[in-house]
Design a protein around this nucleic acid. Structure first.
Lengths: 340, 340
DNA sequence: CTGTTAGCGCTTTCAC
DNA sequence: GTGAAAGCGCTAACAG
């Protein structure tokens, strides 16, 4: 509650001198600084950032928007982002859009009104383009994470979806799987599209059967894989897929749980692999065969680029950082070659 | 970049009128409001929250401090807290203390300087008392989550550590375990202390052996359970514990991974159970037998109490909400009774 | 090395 | 119903 004037009065100096002490201005006599610091401590004075921001136009506040922190993938991104932000003296406001464009829009607006210095964003979908305009109009730098959006020109940290898909499918293929299903999200999300494209390409390249009924597209929020399973069960055994590729960890968990409900065992009856580890603290006996992305790095590196943009105001070439995912073979995928 | 004056000029009214429109003040002629809203839209005007906060003394900004969002337990707390905050029109700044009192102190200071309206805090330890003083001095309401700190009088959401410990130990006891080890964190954390106390009480009550060497206390951040395992291995097989109770999920994961390195199988050679689920999206075949707390509720309810405190400024009786944990029996605990 | 003045963008208070 | 003046807490720009 104490203001800079209270400190000034107590230390017998002007407010300006107190301000200089707070901001470590060099030209302050040692003795004066001591006196001011004493007053600050005695009054328990903490500078008011709102007042500071009003003048300096910077807030040392950053915004992090993801679709859902509960997802271990985004949790790690958040942690990486916060670590880097903290190193550089920034703080992070975080929000979950739940894949909802309107929610995203309102979060972006309130971030702008907060005077944030920059934003790290996992766009909810292609429609994010118009939401992001609010940032460009207000000259607020931002960096995209995990998902690209056409027509948005800025730095981005992203995974190689073709590489990841190939690693996963190749693994299944080597294990003898030929009928491979695909469970995925809405096509308005770039990495969903890319994974889907890579999936189709892989099947074609290896002349594996492509079956519309083996593919299932669901809302990333209200996952309903049981519908999918029911469809599969209408097919004769020999035309059901022997493996399913899920384009996200949430989907895979839901799928495996539902398969279990139907009495279908993984991997004995069917193999399931997915993108992004559902196990945030991998155990030696973790279940899922996955292709894992360096999520912490996504956040950390993205934040680094963001802060860079903030501190070097001049317009510069946009960078795209592409991380390659890593295949982790575990227990959810079964080798068909040794089937008796 | 447009200010309230730009809007005022464009709409041919005073800044005051614009302010009234923004804040939905009733006494504004419909036609004026329309005109102002049009100008706002055209100029893409977004009110400056710093300027607003400077006057109104509220920021609609809340602070959430946990030790580490990466831990699924805290991830859920964060998600619950953010959901409630969003419902009530608040935004959340989040920080990780990594169990570090100094980091906590600096985060609290910068939260105060931001003019946050309140704070949700998982205290790093008993020493948090002095950090929290900064909040009381500045009349900033706060609510504690998951860990109690003596001499801090405020609302708190917490789990019943005695109940949880008993559920876990009782489960082991029924399975025939009598030599039960304990891996835990620093005694400066309230729930660590309570779980430890309950552990000792349980053993005494059931006249089970208490062995100093079966107990291991480690730093919650740099977990080194391999030291512990080495100690156990120096003992003859028949005086090694048959089960180990870990007071947190991180500890259990580290322990099981290290046991595996030493060629000790869980649960075949030794059972391991723990507090708080390490599996954020539980699978039907998840590994750990745990006692699980409603982490999302911790965050949601804590936020509810916090906002309540903020909006009813008068001092009121502190509330303590105690949630009972739920025992989830899975595969990491083995029944000794049917041992051949 | 330190102080004075003015003003950041907004809202409170009082007029009209 | 609307506006003018003053000031929230701070710092940039100048003075001394």
């Amino acid at each position: 509650m104490a203001t800079i004037y209270d400190v000034a009065k107590k230390a017998n100096v002007s407010a300006m001198t107190v301000s200089r002490v707070i901001n470590n201005h060099p030209s302050i006599k040692e003795e004066t600084r001591k006196r001011v610091e004493k007053a600050i401590k005695e009054l328990d004075y903490i500078p008011n950032r709102s007042a500071q921001s009003l003048i300096s136009k910077d807030s040392k506040l950053l915004s992090l928007i993801v679709t859902d922190v509960s997802n271990p993938f985004f949790t790690s991104i958040a942690r990486g982002a916060e670590d880097k932000a903290h190193e550089e003296g920034f703080q992070l406001v975080f929000s979950n859009t739940d894949e909802n464009i309107e929610k995203e829009s309102s979060y972006i607006k309130s971030a702008v009104s907060r005077g944030i210095d920059g934003m790290l964003l996992t766009p909810a979908g292609d429609a994010s383009t118009k939401n992001v305009e609010a940032l460009t109009r207000h000259h607020i730098p931002f960096v995209l994470i995990d998902r690209d959006v056409e027509a948005i020109d800025t730095d981005i940290v992203i995974g190689d979806n073709v590489d990841g898909t190939n690693k996963l499918l190749n693994h299944l293929y080597e294990l003898g799987h030929e009928r491979i299903g695909f469970v995925t999200g809405p096509a308005t999300v770039s990495n969903v599209r890319e994974r889907e494209g890579a999936y189709v390409d892989f099947l074609k390249k290896h002349q594996l059967p492509i079956n519309e009924n083996w593919m299932f597209r669901t809302d990333l929020r209200k996952v309903k894989t049981s519908t999918y399973i029911k469809t599969l069960l209408t097919m004769p055994k020999e035309s059901q897929p022997t493996a399913i590729y899920c384009s996200s960890n949430f989907l895979a968990v839901d799928l495996v749980n539902n398969l279990h409900v139907f009495g279908i065992r993984v991997p004995d009856d069917i193999s399931v692999v997915c993108y992004d580890d559902p196990h945030p603290m991998p155990l030696h006996n973790s279940f899922f065969t996955v292709v894992n992305q360096p999520a912490y790095q996504f956040g950390y590196k993205g934040m680094e680029m963001l802060i860079n943009r903030i501190e070097n105001k001049e317009a510069k070439q946009s960078q795209k950082i592409i991380y390659l995912p890593e295949l982790i073979i575990r227990r959810s995928s079964k080798n068909l070659n040794y089937d008796s």
